[in-house]
Design a protein around this nucleic acid. Sequence first.
RNA 1: GCGGCCGUAGUUCAGUUGGUAGAGCCCAGGAUUGUGAUUCCUGUUGUCGCGGGUUCGAGCCCCGUCGGCCGCCCCA
Length: 420
Amino acid sequence: MERLRGMYDVLPSEVWIWQRMEKIVSQVFQSYSFQEIRFPVVEETALFTTAIGEATDVVEKEMFSFQSRSGLPISLRPEGTAGCVRAVIQNDLCNRGTIQKLWYQGPIFRYERPQKGRNRQFTQYGAEIFNVSSPQADAELILMSARLWKKIGLPNITLEINSLGTGQARLEYREVLITYFKSHIDQLDKDALSRLETNPLRILDSKNPKMQEIVQNAPVLSDYLDEESMDHFEQLKSILDECGIKYVVNQKLVRGLDYYSRTVFEWITSDLGSQGTICGGGRYDSLVELQGGKPTPAVGFAMGLDRIIELIKDLNLWQPDNQVDAYMVIDKEIHMKHINKISEKIRSALPNLNLLINQNPSSFKAQFKKADKLSADFAIIIGEHEIKNESITLKSLNDKDFGQKEMKFDEFVNTLNQYK
RNA sequence: GCGGCCGUAGUUCAGUUGGUAGAGCCCAGGAUUGUGAUUCCUGUUGUCGCGGGUUCGAGCCCCGUCGGCCGCCCCA
């Protein structure tokens, strides 16, 4: 039996990266007063098709969809926002305009062709703000993500932002675009033709060199933005300027989910090949209503932990902590019952000490070698001598001045307490 | 979903015109009677991704399949 395609195991040798990352992210989110919310990995398929949009790639070909035993079409979540919004509505978290700042974390599933930085199961951390329509919320999310990158130590990442305007402005622009592309229909490639009716905005994203000219000369979205959206965008930019966040306005940044309006943004790295986006998000002021809730402005982002961890590994940004604080070196002649008794006593007195006991004792030399390999700070030596004296010998493996001392239990505990 | 490259011990790889497999690292033990580097010695592991075909004979050739990587598409 083998792992399914696009899935992966996180092995003990690298799980520390995940754990440290989880700690950092949740700590930063909490420092902005976001609260964690947890919701299912499986939802009705209809939730995703209405939220994300029928004509998107995610819905058209990337969902893990199947039927429940009752025949209901259900899907593994291909993104987090739809489920989060569903939970907010169903539990009435936003009644009477309550501001909610929520974060979530967990596995996301998309049936795509795997590649570096792209798996079929991957982990997203997301943050959403409900009931704040001002660009203050958009800005806070961007500032919070910027703080995260700094804390993680990510180099070479850039922020791209754009405004899609209100739904209505977008509709208007859409018509203009369709008219424009139809007048150049002979120059469109296959991909563009199929998008012409479903999602013409994404034709602008085409990387086909033959399409560049027609794309370059296409009408620009910003010319069709409504007054309010333009003002919203300008305010956002001025906050970012004031806080020293650098960004690039990318007029062609559209994003593949239909629910976005006004602000959209992406954080991009050049160190991961063609999978450059490590975090993306935007405003979705009409989604809550679309899902059956009261009109509620909202904005959020999601970041791909897998890609960020890939970066940390590739660029060697982090170093692991010692897995073992102390390694117990044992004379193999001693009965294990003495060893267990002593080690249990140590664990009660020093609960934070990571103590590894050699359960297959060989020569002292081999055991010290092992302790050294694990880069333990201390060796705890139990031999016949120590058993007879009811003592413990403690040896520092990285402090020569400390050397090696035989001591009674209380002194031993006090000594290690100073260290840990 | 489309195009290209690849798949040999835990890992990185070698394997010459087809004659049934090796090296480094890692791991374990040891180099005299309770001590960490380096060095030295010893040792373990492979359905050569899987299935089929060609051949007297295939890790090497052919087909299929699964998986990985790269590009496109798209996205986190």
